[in-house]
Design a protein around this nucleic acid. Sequence first.
RNA 1: GGAGAGGUGGCAGAGUGGUCGAAUGCGCGCGCUUGGAAAGCGCGUAUACCGCAAGGUAUCGGGGGUUCGAAUCCCCCCCUCUCCGCCA
Length: 437
Amino acid sequence: MDCSFPGYPLKGACMLDPKLLRESPATVRAAIARKHLDVDLDGVIALDTAWRALLAEVETLRGRQKAANHDMAALKKGSPEFLAKVQEMKAVSAEVKAKEEGLKSLEEKWHAAMLTLPNIPHPTVPDGRTPEENRVHATHGSPDAASPHALPHWEIPGFGNLIDFPRGAKVTGAGFPFLIGDGARLSRALLQFFLEEGVKAGYTEVSPPIFVNAASATATGQLPDKEGQMYETTPDRLYAVPTAEVPLTNFFRDEILEEDALPVLRCAYTPCFRREAGSYGKDVRGLNRVHQFDKVELLKWVHPSASYDELEKLRTDAERLLRKLELPYRVLLMCGGDLGFAQAKKYDLEVWAAGQKRWLEVSSCSNFEAFQARRAQIRFRVKATGKPELVHTLNGSGLAVPRVLAALLENNLQADGRVKLPAALVPYFGREHVAFR
RNA sequence: GGAGAGGUGGCAGAGUGGUCGAAUGCGCGCGCUUGGAAAGCGCGUAUACCGCAAGGUAUCGGGGGUUCGAAUCCCCCCCUCUCCGCCA
């Protein structure tokens, strides 16, 4: 039930273009430096060279086999010439077998090594190593404008009536809260609002499977690097999706689209499941970090020439949601060190949570250029040449529900203990106020 | 879950051990023909990798095996369809 994995990703699909490594290793070296990664580039290059040399040897031998095969077809079976040829080719066959074994193991090493090479950051990505060095690209609304009654959402009187962590922990485990009454209703209203806005912005709504197989998780990079971060099912070895990005991106895996079809815009709501292994600390309180949460994801498959325009539009589409919700937020342009392995450029949207007095990430809008597309083999046919070329993929949250919900509760808490909802949400929620009892 | 039938190029569909990257048809592209079109005729029409190039190699659902040689034989897996069972 593992869909011929792990054979799948070895079919020549790696993330960075091997040609780039050969023709411009300096570019790759610079990218590694800008992302502050520790990669043995020289080792990768050595493996690549060795692999190519051995491949040439094996192919030459196979060529001999093929030629002999051709000759033997013309010979009389069982004739002395034929039998001599068989003897001769037995030796070649043994040699091919031995070398192929070496090639296979070398190829695996080569592939693993190639997977350590990160995507190249875009020139507009600022230098920097830590999150503190991300550039504040824009700020909208003022944190000071939030309610003077603001409290961290978990301290709001009656919060437990809307979001029940203890019972969630009893039933499932820590980080799996129940949403009840207005909590559940507000969450649903937000989802509905996000989806409707996504559709209005031109994204086609999709409801994808929320379990994926290993091949899909590999194509989008969850495997093998983040294996421990996903929930895995037994006995079918399916993975609960950490984001809709995974099933959505894989929709076109191993396909060639028509150039006219680009860009393809899609949005999807899914619950998202994350083990969050190893992330403890004070930022995990309340809804800030949970193992299951609802999110609408925005996805784009675009022509390479358009991907940076599309990134700006994607960011704008996500921002619009926060504006309509009248939440103060800021846009961060991620620096090289905080960019992420697969991204060429990334904006984070952070909403102001007035009770906690801190910014919460609610969206991350990224251009992967051809990095994901290469691994997932998603291409389009260039009309002028008839040849396939990799698409560029982008994605961004639009948006993650729990933190938005938290910010709404904190920022709009009134003296009477109720929360007043922004006008845009009222049609979806059905009332103007959230009550905690 | 049980039983059976299948998975070959954009599609349909041949091919049961060798000269098969794969007949034929459709579709598509270019050209001829035509006042123009249809028909007809001719040519072309997968992807990836290696190579400066010439060229080579791989791929017939996936993986493994037998063999000098596998689309073709053997084993395992996946998927689709039909019937039965079960079920929201």
